[in-house]
Design a protein around this nucleic acid. Structure first.
Lengths: 226, 226
DNA sequence: TTTAAAATGATAGTATTACTATTATGTTTG
DNA sequence: CAAACATAATAGTAATACTATCATTTTAAA
């Protein structure tokens, strides 16, 4: 499993990058160190100038790979969701029971960290922190409709469709499979954030994880009523 | 009801503004037109310079009321949640049954728009659109812990506590009242956004509202199992 | 009604951001 | 070995995100 996923290269939508960062050492360094820098200083303070200084290259070289930092965030987000989609496929493939598939899928998208699998150059646990804090910023913009049309959220949406499909299989009568799927994915990121920063408005803590909360939710809504 | 809420002035946490915008005509104009401008051009493109031009005042005058646009967003967010808290209190006060209180509370925080009540100078339906697109940006920053310590999210958290309290009353055995409350509030904003912009990953549309989805959720999770 | 205080307006200035353009230098590959 | 390509270095622009200063207008207190 480890080696299998290690060699998977995500297909990132045309238009997110100017030049494929996978195609060169500099490109990989931009992505790897960019992720670390965003984690350290936050997306708002992150600039290509600072990244250039960090990896001892020129600002203009970074601009040859990505138009701007928003596109960079889209790139690493697509990377993350592509990796998540892979894991969803692999880890539910061998499960015959739809209920088991649903439990596994919900666990995967809501669980704390997944350091069991790691790519050669991107630190997934750091990436996950960035996704929790910054992923919503990729679509909470005035350009969301244009960018959606260009397919920039395709992989993310595919993850939602996949979970919704399992929900439908478990309970075909349930009226809101897509909403529930998007609520679980987006909501679990929110609960992770609250657990770290606004602890009083969540029940998640060291002993209770967002996965517990959402597994319970899915059980009550989809499974028990079926 | 209308007149009652019209006269309510929200208490905004010390430190969010430099000078109370409620204290002058210019201050009110900054808030009123600032809300409209953010709605028109988006929070990312919004600047105090543009706002100054719009209301024919100087950029520096705007800076006398708010340190920066992040604080401005915090201000209008506090305003919104303060108004929501008021409505929660008023509209559940006369309900004796906890179940009814919960349904009403969930309806209030998740429903489409609430143009039944309007303040003298802030357009609530426009404000709600901004909250849906931009509220999460108030806390998805590196400064969230400092700002939380300063009480900048106090009113928002109070809204969550209130809903969580009703959940507990309806079903004291339920293990995740705060998480469910924060999931409903945050999640409904997300569903509203999806309904507008990423329609394929939600079941909400012209005929199905986020309120339907969350009322169903609450019914399955809290009420039926109690 | 005067006068002092407070609020606003106008102008200027700085550092940083978010880029684009140009040219030089190094590095592959056919 | 040369052409093509990638990167480095430098410079430059417009906009952003402010701060400071000082003049003018408004308001409120004596």
């Amino acid at each position: 499993m480890k080696t299998l996923l290690q060699n998977i290269r995500p297909e990132i939508q045309e238009g997110i990058f100017l030049k494929n960062p996978e195609s060169s050492a500099l490109g990989k360094s931009i992505v790897k160190e960019g992720v670390l820098l965003i984690d350290e200083i936050g997306f708002e303070s992150f600039t290509f100038k600072k990244l250039g200084e960090r990896i001892q290259t020129n600002e203009s070289s970074v601009y040859r790979y990505f138009e701007n930092k928003h596109k960079f965030l889209l790139y690493i987000s697509s990377w993350y969701w592509s990796w998540m989609e892979c894991r969803l496929v692999f880890e539910t493939a061998n499960l015959v029971d739809a209920n088991d598939q649903l439990m596994k899928a919900v666990l995967l998208v809501t669980e704390d960290t997944a350091d069991d699998i790691s790519s050669d150059y991107i630190d997934e646990s750091v990436l996950k922190r960035i996704i929790i804090s910054d992923f919503t910023k990729t679509f909470l913009t005035k350009e969301v409709d244009d960018e959606n049309r260009e397919g920039f959220f395709k992989i993310y949406k595919r993850v939602i469709y996949r979970i919704a499909a399992i929900i439908k299989e478990v309970n075909p009568a349930y009226a809101y499979p897509e909403s529930l799927a998007s609520n679980i994915v987006e909501g679990s990121m929110h609960q992770h954030f609250l657990k770290q920063h606004l602890k009083t408005i969540t029940n998640c803590n060291e002993s209770v994880s967002p996965a517990d909360f959402y597994l319970n939710m899915v059980n009550s809504i989809v499974i028990k009523s079926s």
